[in-house]
Structures are given as structure tokens and as C-alpha cells.
Nucleic acid binder design. Structure first.
Lengths: 351, 351
DNA sequence: TTGTATGCGTTATCAC
DNA sequence: GTGATAACGCATACAA
């Protein structure tokens, strides 16, 4: 590695910003008329509009949003708070959000909360200072202060990913408890007898999946806490491999299947099984969660749970837009809970 | 899938926003004093500051950024333009950016350009309306209008990912041509004789890698265009598998290695080789690009090229901060090209 | 250490 | 159809 350093440009900051007035003078109209043209108001004569538009392009005028927001209190801004950027799960959600927001001429202000309610609260404070017209936030574990700030803001709030017990406003997601239970029941049905659980990060949603897992196994007296391996750190393929080794060590191999809280971990488990020559799915079943693309291409193809990530994002912002448009019209307003569901995708890593 | 719809809240918009004056009245001081407390200016007596602070928390006051930006022309905003959100490459870059920006109390405004210079130009126009203090943008393929808007804005601009020929301001990245050439040379050195190339998306950087590939093979008379398979669509594991089949069909199997423009494609190729019982690396060599985590866990472990994605993001914003701080001090300013380099990581999918 | 006057660039509102 | 005026909420510059 080497650097090719050269001399900096040393740009000068003192670039006077162009305003409506500059354009107005050039086009021989009042600033107000320019404003009307910029905002594409109907009642401007064609020739005037043309004169203004050429002035705008010739000068390279760009409207000042801060002034506009201040004067009109319309920001065209949606705030989005997610716990992680380095997770396909959230990049898919984000795509869903952007794909609706951008064509509607809205901006997205994105905050990474790093799975911390404290950081989240700080982000919310910052966000609300920008007068967003809506907020999309992950899950329902906000601090009390955060929740009341959001509620007090008076703008539509969508809590996504998770079915939350006491939604602030809109809620879009699915029950991770049910999903965890469904996976576990499926493993039981495939006659695995000694089923373990591997989890990392252990945020609310992961804990719910674990709870679903435990509830199913408890009911049939099949729950053994030795087979539950969790860790607060972030998950990764490498972590999956490590946790699998821990599971095998702790149970002395007395385990014939594992439900991993996500596909990354499961991929690590699969890799480890290959290395240790453990036959999957005959001797050992592996199930992941999320159905990332790689799951279908693993060796053997990974059983997992498919969830509508893109849709959670896109529906969230659609509902927010509904609220924005029909704010005072309760009849036209939309539902405040949408279950995006989940689907078991059983491939070759389980029987 | 099913929905649990219930009755909406129907929030009222008419929430009067709290201002400095409200706090000032409550704390029995002037608005200016409140402003000083909010901005943590030194010269405010402790008891006054406390009175103001309690008033702020009691009322739940949140400063209006638009007004602040308008009055001070300091936005604490960095604009970031990337071509894709659903690509680990960029989520790592983003982490690098956020990890520096947020602790420095800066916001990031993120735009997805979808690999389109037209969308990019539109995004730039929108962005500049928000008075950002710096801009991070991918590569150097902006439209003429985009480039001049950026230059005219007078704020630091960092073009990242790629070594660009005529940088607007700061440039951080590496030569994809050199990287492509290095991979190809390595395959040649491992005595692969009939090397192919598989590429999707074919943006500037991918084309550069291909050019490097071609230059090395041409030099030794080993370039056969039949072995170059490219497609403009997005890449994915599935696409890698499909393109590999196409490569095999077009060359009638007369090919003993392939350089894939990224790891997703390479993973698809590997999967296909397994299915077709083609021995990797003995009969067929596979090399990817980017070194995503999964590469090391593929079967066999994937040879690839490691690049400093996180660093491209973090250095970019660090340099922008340098520019912001030392704007008028040319001596203290930083270099305007930084080569973040690359590294061949040869694993088991090549000899 | 604190307060007052003024302006930032835009839009709402009302004249013309 | 177009223009004048007064906010919007805050920070700069200066006065006290």
C-alpha cells in the first residue's frame, strides 16, 4: 500500500450563495414570481416562466431548503433509524424505503443506532430538529423519553421489523416469537430430538425467536438449556462457527439440530459441519433465519425463514405518506398494524 | 400472510413548535442566552445555565435546525452519494463514514444514485439545496453539470472508490485497472492457460478491472474474447452461476480459470462447479473480488482481492473535516489523492 | 455576563 | 397574473 500525495486545492469558502433575488433581478420579476416558478405553481404566464427558468439555469440557482423549510414548515424529509448498516436485513429495508421516498420527492435522513436505545434517543433528538414529516424506527424498545418525543412531534411514526406491544402510531412487522416457534415445531416434526439454539447480538427480535423456540420445546419436554448458546456480540459467519464449536463442546455432541438466529451464523455452522465431517441433514439439522441470497447456494442449501424485508420498508413509508396526505381525514386513513408475515423455506440442511 | 388492521390514531398536525423564546420566558432570560446555552458557549453564568437547561428539559425544547442553518450557514451536514444500497461494498464504506461523522456531530444525508449519472445529478441538486459542508461521491463519472455544481458549491468534495483521472477536489481509492491486472497476472503465474472473465453491472470500476485483465492477457497473447462474459444487469450469486454456464457453453468448456468482477458472482461460479463436478482449483481456477466475509467460508475457500472499504469511507470524511477546519490555511491542508490499495488473497479456489 | 437589533432566504397572505 | 410585506426561528454583531 502506498499513497500518491499531491498539493491540495485549498478551495475558498467565500462563495456567495445565489438567492431568489438574484434570479429575480436577472429575469426582471419579483422574487415571489421566481418562487412560484421554482415550486411549479400554476398561475404564472408562460413567457414569464420561461424568462425565469432561463435565468435559473444560466445562474445555476439552487433553492435554499433551510429557508424554505423555515418559512413553510414542510421539510420533505423522512427520518429513518436502524440499528445496523452492515446487515443485509437493513439494506433491503432501506431499499424499500428509498424506492418509495425518492420518487415522491422526499429525502431520507438515516441514523444508525448501533442497537443502543441511548444512541437512538440522541438520534431522535437530532432528527426532530430537522422537522421531519415522518419517522421510521426499528422495533419498540425506545427509551421513555424517546417515545414521548416521537409522540409529541405530531408526525406519523412507523415502528418496523417487529410486532410491538404498545405501538406509538403505525406498526409494521411480524411476530418473531411465532416465527421462532414455527421453525422449532418444523424441526420437531422432522423428528430431530435434541435441538439447540445459537444466537448472537440478542436484540429484542432475536430474544423473541428464542422464546418461541423455548416455548415449543418446553411443551414437549425437549428443552435443555445446555443447548442454548447465545452471545451479545454481533453475528457473523465466523461467529456461527465458533458458537457451534461451543455448542458441541458444552453438550459433548449430544445435539442433533440447531436453529440459528440468522443465516450468517447458520452458514458458519454449515462450514464447521463440513470440516468436522458431520453429515447434514442426516446426522445434524441446521436452520437459519432471513433467507439471504447465499442461503440457497450453501452446501447443502440452507433451510431458513423468509421475511419481507423490502416490503416492511416500502409499506412503512407508504403508510406514512397516507397519514401525511389524509391527516385530518380519519376515514381515509390506513390501518396501524400490518403483519408482513414470514415463510419457512425448508431446503437441504434439514430433513 | 394476513393483516391485523385496526383503527388509526389520526394525529393532529397542529403541534405548535417550541422556540427559543418559549424557553427564554420560562427561564426568565433573553432568547440569546438560551441560544448560548444550547450551543454550549462558555460565557454563561452557571446558575443561569442551569435555569435554562431545566427549562429546556421541562418543555422538551428541540432547536430548529433549519433556522439555525439559515442564520449561521453551518449545516453540520455531509452529503453522500453511492450507486447502491444492496451491496456490502457500500455498507462498509458507509460504516466508515458514519463512524467518523456522527461522533463529530455531523449528519449524513445519503443518496442512492442507482449507477445512473442522471439520477446522480438530480441528487446533487437536491443535496446542494441543503447546504452541506462536504460531499462524498462515488467515482468520477459525473455529468458535466454535476461536476460544475459540485465545484461551484465551494465545499470539499471527495470522490471515492476509484482513482479518477481529473478529480474535482479530494480523491480516495485505488486503481481497479491495476487490481484487475494483478489478479490476472497471478492466475497466469499459477499456470492457468485459458482464463476467462465474468462481469455484471459493468460500471466504470468493473470495466477498469476488465481492462487490466485484457492488458495482461494481450501482452502474452492469451486473450480470447469468447472467454469474456459481461452483462449490464446487477450481479448476484444466481447471476454468477448463469454467466458461468454461458461461459462454458460459449467456449465449449475450453477454459481453465475465471476472474469474476466480484465475490457474489464467484460464489455462484463455485456453486455451479460443485454441481457440475468440476474440480476447483485443479481443473478450474476461480478468483473473485472484494473479499466479503463469505469468501473465506466458501467450499473451497475463495481466492479474491481485499480492498479497504471501511477506510475509503473513514478517510474521505476525515479529509473533508480537515478541509473544513483548515480551509484558509493551505499549509495545513491534506493531500488530495490517497491510494487505499488492494491485496490479493489467494485461497483454495486457485492453485 | 447578558440583552437588542438585524438579517439569513424563503413562503403565506393579501393587495393590486 | 404579479408584487409588497411580514413572518419563520435562530445566530451574528454589537451595545450595555
Amino acid at each position: 500500500m502506498f499513497n500518491n500525495n499531491s498539493i491540495p486545492m485549498g478551495k475558498s469558502q467565500g462563495v456567495k450563495r445565489l438567492t431568489l433575488k438574484d434570479v429575480a433581478e436577472k429575469a426582471q420579476v419579483s422574487p415571489m414570481t421566481v418562487s412560484r416558478v421554482v415550486n411549479e405553481f400554476a398561475g404564472v404566464r408562460a413567457d414569464v416562466r420561461n424568462r425565469v427558468n432561463t435565468a435559473i439555469t444560466e445562474l445555476g440557482y439552487i433553492p435554499n431548503r433551510s429557508a424554505s423549510v423555515l418559512a413553510s414548515s414542510k421539510s420533505k424529509l423522512i427520518g429513518v433509524l436502524i440499528p445496523s448498516l452492515s446487515n443485509v436485513v437493513f439494506s433491503d429495508v432501506l431499499r424499500g424505503i428509498y424506492d418509495i421516498a425518492i420518487p415522491a420527492n422526499y429525502q431520507v435522513l438515516l441514523f444508525n443506532t448501533h442497537y443502543s436505545p441511548i444512541e437512538e434517543e440522541r438520534a431522535i433528538r437530532t432528527l426532530l430538529g430537522q422537522s421531519p414529516e415522518g419517522v421510521i424506527i426499528t422495533g419498540g424498545e425506545q427509551t421513555g423519553a424517546a417515545k414521548s418525543m416521537l409522540a409529541a412531534s405530531g408526525v406519523p411514526i412507523a415502528q418496523i421489523m417487529d410486532k410491538v406491544e404498545d405501538p406509538i402510531d403505525i406498526n409494521i412487522g411480524f411476530s418473531h416469537f411465532e416465527a421462532g416457534a414455527a421453525v422449532t415445531q418444523s424441526l420437531v416434526d422432522q423428528s430431530y430430538k435434541k435441538i439447540g439454539f445459537i444466537g448472537a447480538r440478542m436484540d429484542r427480535r432475536t430474544c423473541e425467536r428464542l422464546a418461541g423456540f423455548e416455548s415449543v420445546l418446553s411443551a414437549i419436554n425437549g428443552l435443555d438449556k445446555k443447548r442454548v448458546i447465545t452471545i451479545p456480540q454481533a453475528s457473523s459467519v465466523a461467529m456461527g462457527a465458533a458458537l457451534f464449536r461451543e455448542l458441541m463442546a458444552k453438550t459433548e455432541g449430544d445435539c442433533d439440530a440447531v436453529f440459528c438466529c440468522n443465516d450468517d451464523l447458520a452458514l458458519g455452522v454449515l462450514h464447521e459441519c463440513n470440516k468436522m465431517q458431520i453429515k447434514v441433514p442426516e446426522k445434524f439439522g441446521v436452520c437459519g433465519f432471513n433467507d439471504i441470497e447465499m442461503a440457497a447456494y450453501a452446501q447443502p442449501a440452507l433451510s431458513t425463514v423468509s421475511v419481507n424485508r423490502y416490503k416492511m420498508g416500502s409499506r412503512a413509508i407508504e403508510l406514512i405518506f397516507n397519514r401525511i396526505r389524509h391527516d385530518d381525514d380519519t376515514l381515509l386513513a390506513s390501518p396501524n398494524y400490518i403483519n408482513t408475515g414470514f415463510e419457512l423455506v425448508m431446503r437441504d440442511s434439514t430433513r
